[in-house]
Design a protein around this nucleic acid. Structure first.
Lengths: 142, 142
DNA sequence: TATTGTTATACTCTATAACTATA
DNA sequence: TATAGTTATAGAGTATAACAATA
């Protein structure tokens, strides 16, 4: 029985994503974090004071769905929010948050290295460019 | 503001997968199908008489979660099931199912071609091997 | 004992509509 | 008028535990 799916890049892209995300979630479980939390925290760490809606746009998370993230991370004292004007709120890591991000960063680096190492050496430089090309995100005015 | 995520293959893998799945679901919407339905139907089409649990194993869908697929596809008269022994049931496409799979196949081909075309010509041969390597699925006893 | 199909259940992620208060 | 944060809600997708019937 030869399945007709593993020759389809789109299908294999999905399976590869699902499998590696499950692995990452397992690696992050000791920190009681999930992959989506990490993306959130990394972004705040890289751009302290970033607003909630900016994070949502960068991560392609609907505005409404960022609320639960912020509430949960704040309840864990990993981030804090400060009103920047009547509408927006700026997000910062707390010391606890910075500490946790440090631990997470080590896990992520191990994870990403392990992923890349699955690819034959000579193809590794193509991995990120190919994935970015497949992503095909609209040019950001970053 | 430069985000720290788009240099991580694992993260870009996830975003590429999510974005292309959303596109595929849009393309399949006229057939009232989702990407997961297509995988299910393609597998039955490729291996008539395949059992429900075999499909689940190949698609990495928990046995419990295949029940809803089979029920829904059968309710739409796209597949039928026949008892093969007291436990297993063999799945086949109905004529309606075969017709729909034909239409879906054309959409998938367009979709997959469009995905590949996002990658510079000289890298295209590496796309599938790289994705399979990242997937890193345990060697299947096919 | 192990497997198949099944029910029930829960959690994550995503998507939309609508509301408020601000700009 | 448009934007930021919020609430409520719904739909996918995924995961686990447990059960009956069968191999």
């Amino acid at each position: 029985m030869n399945d007709p799916l593993t020759s389809l890049p789109g299908y294999v892209l999905r399976r590869a994503s699902a499998a590696t995300l499950a692995e990452l979630n397992q690696r992050l479980a000791p920190l009681d974090l999930r992959h989506s939390d990490i993306a959130f925290l990394f972004l705040i760490d890289a751009t302290p004071g970033i607003t909630q809606s900016e994070v949502g746009r960068l991560l392609d998370i609907q505005r409404a769905n960022t609320v639960a993230f912020v509430a949960r991370l704040e309840a864990r004292h990993l981030i804090e929010r400060t009103r920047v004007d009547g509408r927006s709120q700026a997000l910062h890591l707390t010391p606890d948050g910075e500490s946790l991000v440090g631990k997470a960063r080590a896990i992520i680096e191990t994870h990403e290295t392990e992923l890349l190492n699955r690819v034959p050496t000579e193809w590794r430089p193509m991995v990120l460019p190919i994935l970015l090309a497949l992503w095909n995100r609209p040019a950001s005015a970053g």
